[in-house]
């Protein structure tokens, strides 16, 4: 079936179709369409919707729902995600599967409600306290909002870890056709031998992240890091567009990746050998793939709606700072095609 819908609603439907049956959220623009959609859809599929009293509460309700074995999700926008970081750290520490959606807006502080990408650091470098990572997926269209959210549940359960959908207010609120098979099957059930549902016919269990015995917490951290390494090896995804033979590469994700693609076409039409690298997973980041591309002589322009956050990872990948330039706008400013094209030409 084909639907005309918003990115936020496509995200909600992707979650429902993946088998998400618990959603808790708190109003914040520009993700409100998602919360409203879940309030309508969850009862239709026998799931739970709760409008919580706070972001803190929402993410901890998701913690509880995950403890009880449900596929669960919360969503918010930048300032609300800051509030959720405590809970996200606990979810990662307790190794619970959950999906968190950040429809980013301009910051810092209360900022504004225009699209932004300034929560990259917060999303990919840990965000809350302690050593942990989130798997971070970056959709660039309404279609990808559906597909990436669907996939997020699969990854969350496969690795027992929180997964973040990192998008922005423009992707969240734009309307585009969404197409999916109505008979799509939910993410296959995985055994959850850790779920708390009453210790019937088995020993009692506990889920915790307070590990006080000598060496216990270090051992748990080593275990978590092994898991994160395995994710880094297996789950990197990126889109390459006309990268072959290109000597000028735009690196951008989400909305900027989408604009970057148009820039590549414009530049190519002017005889400039441009290409695009669009990371689909921001963590794990495609260091190896970008390093391979950088083994030639290509120069890179990283474009973000921020003061320059992902550019740090691109520099780590390229390992030649002179070849990496950055163009970004902040506070709700969206780099336009002509601005980007001009900067690629200057490389």
């Amino acid at each position: 079936m084909k639907y005309l819908t918003t990115g936020n609603e496509a995200c909600g439907e992707g979650a429902i179709r993946a088998g998400c049956r618990f959603y808790a959220g708190y109003p914040i623009t520009p993700q409100n369409e998602l919360t409203a959609y879940m309030s309508k859809r969850m009862p239709e599929v026998g799931g739970v919707f709760i409008q919580s009293e706070s972001e803190l509460s929402a993410v901890n309700m998701v913690f509880g729902a995950a403890v009880a074995g449900a596929r669960s999700m919360t969503s918010s926008s930048s300032p609300g995600i800051s509030l959720k970081q405590e809970g996200i750290s606990y979810i990662a520490a307790a190794e619970l599967p959950a999906v968190i959606v950040n429809v980013m807006r301009g910051g810092p502080g209360l900022g504004n409600i225009a699209p932004g990408q300034a929560d990259y650091f917060q999303a990919v470098k840990g965000g809350g306290h302690g050593d942990y990572r989130l798997i971070v997926l970056a959709p660039a269209s309404v279609q990808e909002m559906f597909e990436f959210t669907f996939k997020a549940f699969s990854l969350a359960e496969k690795y027992r870890t929180p997964v973040m959908i990192l998008t922005d207010g423009m992707i969240g609120q734009m309307m585009e056709p969404l197409e999916f098979d109505d008979a799509i099957k939910p993410v296959p059930a995985v055994p959850k031998p850790w779920v708390l549902d009453g210790a019937k016919g088995r020993p009692s269990r506990s889920i915790k992240s307070l590990l006080l015995k000598d060496g216990e917490l270090e051992a748990h951290n080593i275990h978590l890091q092994k898991k994160f390494s395995s994710i880094e090896k297996k789950e990197v995804e990126l889109e390459l567009y006309k990268v072959k033979g290109a000597d000028r590469i735009i690196v951008a994700y989400g909305l900027m990746g989408r604009i970057g693609r148009e820039c590549v076409d414009t530049l190519r039409s002017k005889g400039i050998k441009a290409g695009l690298v669009r990371p689909l997973t921001l963590w794990p980041f495609p260091y190896k793939e970008i390093r391979k591309i950088a083994s030639g002589k290509a120069k890179f322009l990283v474009v973000e709606m921020s003061a320059g956050q992902m550019v740090e990872d691109v520099r780590l990948a390229v390992q030649d700072d002179k070849r990496v330039r950055f163009y970004g706008r902040m506070g709700g400013g969206v780099p336009e095609e002509k601005e980007i094209v001009a900067r690629v030409k200057q490389l």
Binding site: G64, V67, G198, A199, S204, R205, S206
Partner: peptide, 12 residues
């Protein structure tokens, strides 16, 4: 306690 228990973040 010998029944299923989980921890929660402070106050949550």
């Amino acid at each position: 306690w010998d029944f299923d228990t989980t921890e929660a973040a402070h106050g949550r």
